[in-house]
Nucleic acid binder design. Structure first.
Lengths: 120, 120
DNA sequence: CATTTGGATCGACAGCCGTCAATATAGATA
DNA sequence: TATCTATATTGACGGCTGTCGATCCAAATG
């Protein structure tokens, strides 16, 4: 399994600007289907806090080691939630030396906000 | 922002403005717990479309009879999704005569957008 | 009253989700 | 090489969720 390389990242994930505010005109089934997974990733209190911790962290990035301590959850559980956020395109992941750093993909977040909020 | 839009409101329902943008400072566990249910309600393609259909409808309200036809789902399923949106505080429900009308609770939606988006 | 109609509720089922302990992997260090 | 440390993966478990058919309720109408 070890793909001796490249395990390091290049997250693709659909980055369509997608979707005007949902109050403007009815979403198509496709638009809804493309946005729901991102909202699903956000729809958990632990993941909301994780995202917030990363976003509000100095330099806009945070090491997993910093994140684990903020919760009363096991390390695998935090790792799982980070994977979900990463998979949804909301977090970027970078390994530097021993540690792994996450960073908020702010365009993705802004996309969701626009969908719900109207303005930006 | 302490002014209230009071004219429209009589409903209790904890409507805390809640939560500055999550990019500004780390959410507390309580803040995250209070926002997650709303995001959970939004995190489904059918519910996203339902909300959008209601919001984009003339007069800002829509009758269930209009909504059922937009989906290939059973009437109980649509009813269930509307209940979820209503329970999350995203839709208002009003029965007039034979029909039931739903209306978007735009402050609730704006709250979520602010949480994610930063600006308003 | 009985009938019809719009909508909600109930009960069941399959699939997904959050969590954990155990284990694996990759770097760094000795 | 062996070993420690930081994260990720695996496998399992209970609980939640989306969907349906069947049923119930309430309002309108005969």
């Amino acid at each position: 399994m070890s793909n001796s390389e490249a395990v390091l990242e290049l997250t693709p994930v659909n980055e369509a600007p997608c979707c005007p505010p949902l109050t403007k005109q009815p979403l198509t089934a496709d638009q809804a289907a493309s946005m729901a997974p991102m909202l699903k990733a956000l729809a958990d209190p632990v993941r909301l806090r994780l995202l917030s911790l990363v976003a509000a962290h100095a330099d806009g990035e945070a090491c997993v080691c910093n994140l684990n301590d903020a919760f009363d959850l096991s390390q695998p559980t935090i790792s799982h939630h980070l994977k979900v956020l990463h998979g949804a395109g909301l977090l970027d992941r970078e390994k530097r030396g021993t540690w792994v750093y996450y960073r908020v993909r702010s365009e993705a977040l802004a996309n969701v906000a626009t969908l719900l909020g109207g303005a930006a």
